[in-house]
Nucleic acid binder design. Structure first.
Lengths: 197, 197
DNA sequence: CAAGTTAAAAAACATCCGTTTGACTTTAAT
DNA sequence: ATTAAAGTCAAACGGATGTTTTTTAACTTG
């Protein structure tokens, strides 16, 4: 990516800010008005930015410019609460969403859960955390998973030994679980925590 | 918010998806093309959605519709690493960013740090986590803060007793810190963790 | 000095786009 | 049967928007 001139940097910055504020790209004339420039001058700047790879044009659409590394977020439904100590599940209606960068979700089928309990505290998963789970994923020993054991869900570490699945808490005060009726729902891919107050 | 008709729901959904994919709102004609409708019909749907509070129009701008609960994200620079065991700071150039919902940052001045060490593990803060810190904030006993102690930074719990500041690790194997030279940089407001592999 | 780059302006053109109007059909409720 | 609401269409108007061309000027660089 070539060097940008000062003016080009400013124009690019304006486009960035404008999009962050208004959720749409500015028109050529809106850029011109901000910098008190003519339309043609702005067109030249845009062309320069485009040839340097800092800007993408999508045909002749209105507001049809785009930024190469634009961040994209998609809603992931918070389906309920998962108890990380003993077992508990409360699947509610999905009225709550957490927005995750698509670089993280990568088109995988995901959902989110609120954590209760302390069985995974040594792994840094504490009450109130929101965890994002990717469904139908291959899991390996040591992965943190959400599993259904005899119909109830839990967050645990996954281990498989001689075709037998063990679900371990990282908190040593809880024993490992094993059962003939374990279904792995998905694998932890993300965690967010908000400190309020 | 009144009930939406099936068609109105579909139109709203399309607008939502279109914006997520293209970072811009569709034009009336683009909506019409998708649903194989006339322009006027779409206008009517938009008017209905607007009167029901599910859509906002910004004057007569091209692509000038907006969604009431649109999520907005702003970049927060990851300035370096903070050691949560002993002390350590490496402020690098800000080439790394984490994108945080503006509902969380709320116009506050923020930066982010990568965590190393285990001194805050019982509080759910482990190595590799990215923490978001709000600067210049009033802090209270028990808040988790980033502080400068004799010029080096740390993540600790804040306590003040008789005008003396104590910085405690939640991991009991580290002693509490106190010094005449403690500067509170900011308060933890958010934490994200990505599980890779 | 000559040549190339960057910056800028004005004007004109074609299209894109939001808006409005009037008329028609279907469906559901009264 | 009547009424109302939702849904549809076609057409046209005016302003917004992207595009292109030509001209001018300042600043570097060889």
């Amino acid at each position: 990516m070539k060097e940008l001139t000062d003016k080009q940097k400013k124009v690019l910055q304006f486009i960035n800010d404008f999009h962050a504020d208004n959720a749409m790209m500015p028109t050529v004339r809106e850029i011109a008005a901000y910098f008190k420039l003519s339309i043609g001058s702005v067109q030249q700047h845009l062309k320069a930015l485009q040839s340097k790879g800092c800007l993408i044009k999508r045909g002749s659409l209105s507001r049809g410019i785009d930024l190469p590394n634009r961040q994209n977020f998609s809603p992931v439904a918070v389906l309920g609460t998962v108890h990380a100590g003993t077992f508990l599940e409360q699947v509610e209606d999905a009225n709550d969403y957490v927005y995750i960068n698509t670089n993280v979700t990568r088109n995988r089928k995901c959902f989110a859960l609120k954590v209760k309990g302390d069985s995974m505290e040594p792994s840094g998963i504490v009450e109130g955390d929101t965890i994002v789970v990717s469904q139908g994923e291959r899991v390996y020993n040591g992965d943190i998973v959400v599993a259904l054991v005899d119909g109830e869900s839990a967050v645990k570490m996954f281990y498989k030994e001689r075709d037998r699945i063990f679900l371990k808490s990282s908190n040593p005060k809880y024993p490992a679980i094993t059962s003939d009726n374990i279904e792995i729902v998905g694998k932890l891919i993300y965690l967010v925590r908000e400190y309020k107050g």
